[in-house]
Simulated scan of single mutants.
Amino acid sequence: MPEQTEGQFVYTIHSSVSASQRQEYQAVQERMNRAAMTFTGYLGQDVVYEDSGNGSTLKVTTHVRFEELEQCLRWLDSPQRRELLNEAEELIGYHYRFHLEAGSFDQWIQANGSSRTPIWKVNLLVWLALYPSVMVLMWVSGSTLGSLPLPLNMLISNLITVLLTGYLLVPWLSRVYTNWLSTASRRWTLAGCSTILVAQGLLLMLFSTVPALPWNTTG
């Protein structure tokens, strides 16, 4: 399995080579190592040889280590590396075949991605987006959806509010609250929660006091 530690991306390659070509293959790997040293972020490589069981073929596992994923990709796509592979194919007849463990990328994302956003924070943003959406929809659709039977009214209203919050309001609020969603600071977490509660309070006051809104009509 690929080794993944913080601040390091390990590209793991499995290949096979004839046992009689081991020395030539080692020479190619050493040239690869020297060439990779000229690339930013290169931390080295480890090559492990194992007998495949038939005595004629070796299983080779190569761990190429870089500080960053992007640095590793620059090396893998570089003309210097491609030239070395072409020379190896011409000189020793070695056709470069490999299997990359996808876990290298999965573990990199897990180790270096931002921490998982707490669900309760997402729910607060959904609440902040949903409340005004429902209230405004009730206001503007009173003469249309309001004339429908309640079950059908709710079905259509829920569809509209889900689309509105899911595609517009929640993504917009997520950008506004980006730092709050990812912070581990108790102080800033409480500050963000406070702004949401204040916003909801102001919306409640607005919807409760504006005379033009249908639910505020008396008599």
Rank of each mutant, 00 (worst) to 15 (best):
W180P: 02
L181G: 09
S185M: 06
W188E: 09
Y177Q: 01
R175I: 15
T165Q: 10
L169A: 12
L190R: 01
L163H: 00
W188Y: 15
W172E: 09
L169P: 04
P171H: 09
R187I: 10
L173D: 04
T165F: 02
W180Y: 02
N179V: 08
S182F: 04
T189V: 00
L163Y: 05
W180D: 05
Y167L: 14
L169M: 10
Y167V: 14
W188L: 11
N179F: 04
W180L: 02
L169I: 07
T161L: 04
R187V: 12
R187H: 13
T161N: 01
L181F: 06
T165G: 03
W172C: 05
V176P: 03
L190N: 14
W180Q: 03
V162H: 08
T189A: 05
L190H: 09
L181H: 00
N179T: 08
V162T: 10
W180F: 05
S185G: 01
S185K: 08
V170Q: 13
T161H: 07
V162L: 03
V162S: 14
W180A: 06
V170P: 08
T161R: 04
L173V: 03
R186G: 07
V162D: 13
A184P: 09
S185T: 01
L164P: 01
N179A: 13
L164G: 03
V170K: 13
R187W: 11
T189W: 03
L190G: 07
P171S: 04
W172S: 15
T183I: 03
S182T: 10
R186L: 12
L169D: 05
P171F: 12
P171M: 02
S182E: 07
P171R: 01
V176D: 10
L163S: 03
T161I: 06
L181C: 11
A184I: 06
R186F: 05
R175S: 09
L169S: 09
L181K: 00
S174W: 11
S182R: 00
G166A: 03
L168Q: 09
V176Q: 11
W172D: 15
S182Y: 13
T189C: 04
W180M: 02
W180I: 04
Y177S: 00
T178H: 12
T183K: 00
G166T: 06
W172H: 14
T183Y: 06
L181S: 01
L163R: 02
L190T: 03
V176C: 06
Y167M: 13
Y167K: 11
L168W: 10
V176G: 05
S182G: 04
T165H: 11
V176M: 07
G166K: 06
T161G: 04
L190Q: 12
W188R: 14
R186N: 13
L168C: 08
R186D: 12
N179E: 13
W188A: 12
T183G: 15
L173M: 07
V170G: 15
V176N: 12
W180K: 00
W188F: 15
V176E: 01
T165W: 05
W188K: 15
R186W: 11
A184K: 06
L164H: 02
L168M: 11
L163F: 08
W172G: 14
L164S: 07
T183L: 11
L181W: 08
L164N: 01
W188M: 11
R175F: 08
S185E: 02
S185V: 07
V162P: 12
L169N: 00
G166F: 01
S185I: 08
Y177G: 02
T165K: 12
Y177R: 05
V162W: 06
